[in-house]
Simulated assay, not measured.
Amino acid sequence: MRKFFGLLLLIFVPPADSSEMAAVSSDAGFCGRAEDKSAMCYEWLLNSSPSIRFVAYGYEDGIEYSFYTLLPSDTYEHIIRVYPVIRDSSRNDALFWGYPWDIRDIAHSNGKGQKRFLASFEHNLFDDGEVHSPSWQRRVPAVLFIGRTTQPAMTVPQLKFKASALSGLRTAAGG
């Protein structure tokens, strides 16, 4: 008799009424303070930890996607830059590049205490524009979001996502 030992990873894809991310008004927060108002800027806070912010900022030739901590001094401290990947359930759960206007929520696993996000360092994604990581960051993780693609030609190969806290992603990225 063979015994089966496996790892069960519970992935929570939130219904529309229980999102983990909430949009921040474009005239508030990071986007409200951005010097260049011609840049694209989107910001979300994490409902489970409102001081954690996800920001997409940039131009047609490159948008930087990063997590930040909003400090009590009302300043933003960079946590990690990421590659956003969205799972689009309307397209057989295919994976696509996560443009900011397509992102609706972040995928996460139910962990003990803090949320653990689904991410992977095992990918072939790369920057195709004017985007740069902080000097300490040597690797950029792909992070899984939930959304509806408006760019169906911008597919991403299937990835093996693992649950990780932001602090674990930062450490694995070189920080």
Score class of each variant (00 low, 15 high):
G174M: 04
V140P: 01
K3Q: 01
F67M: 09
P15L: 05
G129I: 08
L9R: 11
S90G: 10
V143T: 07
R116W: 00
L159E: 08
L46Q: 07
P134N: 06
L70Y: 00
E122W: 04
N92R: 10
G129R: 09
T150Q: 11
T149S: 08
P157M: 02
F5Q: 15
S167A: 14
W44I: 00
A142K: 02
A153W: 10
S19T: 06
I103P: 06
G58T: 15
E20H: 03
K160T: 10
P15K: 07
I63S: 08
D88Q: 00
H78Y: 03
L45S: 09
L71F: 00
R148E: 13
L9N: 11
A16R: 00
S51K: 06
V24Y: 05
D105T: 04
R148W: 07
P15G: 06
P134Q: 08
L10Q: 09
N124H: 13
D27P: 07
K112Q: 06
D93V: 01
F54A: 14
G175M: 11
C41N: 12
L159S: 07
D88G: 00
S120P: 01
V82M: 02
P84K: 00
L9Y: 08
A119N: 10
V85W: 01
E60Q: 14
N110R: 11
Q114A: 15
W136S: 11
L71N: 08
D36E: 15
R104W: 03
F96N: 10
R2K: 13
A28I: 12
S109H: 07
D88Y: 00
R116G: 01
K162I: 07
H78S: 06
S109P: 01
V13H: 11
A163S: 07
G111W: 05
R104G: 07
P50Y: 02
A34T: 11
S49R: 07
Q158L: 02
E77G: 13
Y68P: 02
G29L: 12
F145Q: 12
P134C: 04
L46P: 04
T75W: 04
K115Y: 05
C31R: 11
E20Y: 04
L125R: 04
F4C: 13
S51M: 08
L159C: 08
Y65H: 14
E64W: 05
G6H: 05
Y42M: 05
A107S: 03
A94T: 00
S90M: 07
A173M: 06
T75P: 03
V131Y: 05
S19F: 02
R33T: 11
P157E: 03
L8N: 12
G58P: 14
P72L: 03
E60N: 14
P134A: 15
E77N: 15
W44K: 01
